[in-house]
Computed example of a mutant assay.
Amino acid sequence: MWHDLVAVQMPIVEKILRTVAVYALILVLFRLAGKRGLAGMNTFDMVVVFLLSNVVQNAIIGSDNSLLGGVIGAVTLIAVNAVVIRWLARDPRAARLLEGTATTVVEDGRLVPGALRSLALRPSELEHAVRIQNGDDIGEVARARLEPDGQLLVALKADEQSATRGDVEDLRRRLAEIERLLTAIAADRRPPG
Rank of each mutant, 00 (worst) to 15 (best):
S124M: 08
A129S: 14
R110S: 14
A144I: 03
L121E: 03
D137Y: 11
L116E: 00
V83K: 01
V83S: 03
L119H: 07
A115K: 10
L98M: 14
E125F: 00
I72S: 09
V71F: 14
G150C: 09
N81T: 12
N65A: 09
L77A: 14
G139E: 15
V106F: 01
W87R: 00
D149F: 09
A158I: 06
P113E: 03
V106N: 00
N134G: 04
R117H: 07
R110K: 11
G100H: 03
I72E: 09
D136V: 13
H128M: 14
A74C: 11
V84F: 12
L111R: 02
D108H: 09
G139I: 02
G150K: 13
A142N: 10
V112T: 10
G100L: 09
S118V: 07
R117T: 09
E99S: 13
L121V: 08
L146E: 00
R110E: 13
Q161M: 10
G69E: 13
I72Y: 14
E140Y: 01
G73R: 04
R96C: 03
D108K: 06
R96F: 05
S66K: 12
L68D: 07
T101E: 15
G70D: 10
H128A: 15
L153I: 06
L156V: 07
T104V: 15
G114C: 05
N134E: 05
R145N: 08
S66E: 15
P123D: 03
E107Y: 05
A94S: 08
A158E: 13
G109T: 05
G109P: 03
A163C: 05
H128Y: 13
V84G: 09
G100V: 13
A102C: 01
G114N: 02
G109V: 02
V106C: 14
D137G: 15
E125H: 02
L97M: 15
D108Q: 11
A74H: 04
V154S: 00
R96V: 02
S63F: 14
D91M: 10
G69C: 10
N65D: 04
P92R: 15
V154A: 03
L152C: 10
V141E: 08
Q161W: 00
V154H: 01
L153W: 12
Q151E: 10
I85H: 05
P148N: 04
A95N: 14
A144Y: 00
G139W: 04
S63R: 07
A120H: 13
G70Y: 12
E160K: 12
H128E: 15
P113W: 10
I138Q: 11
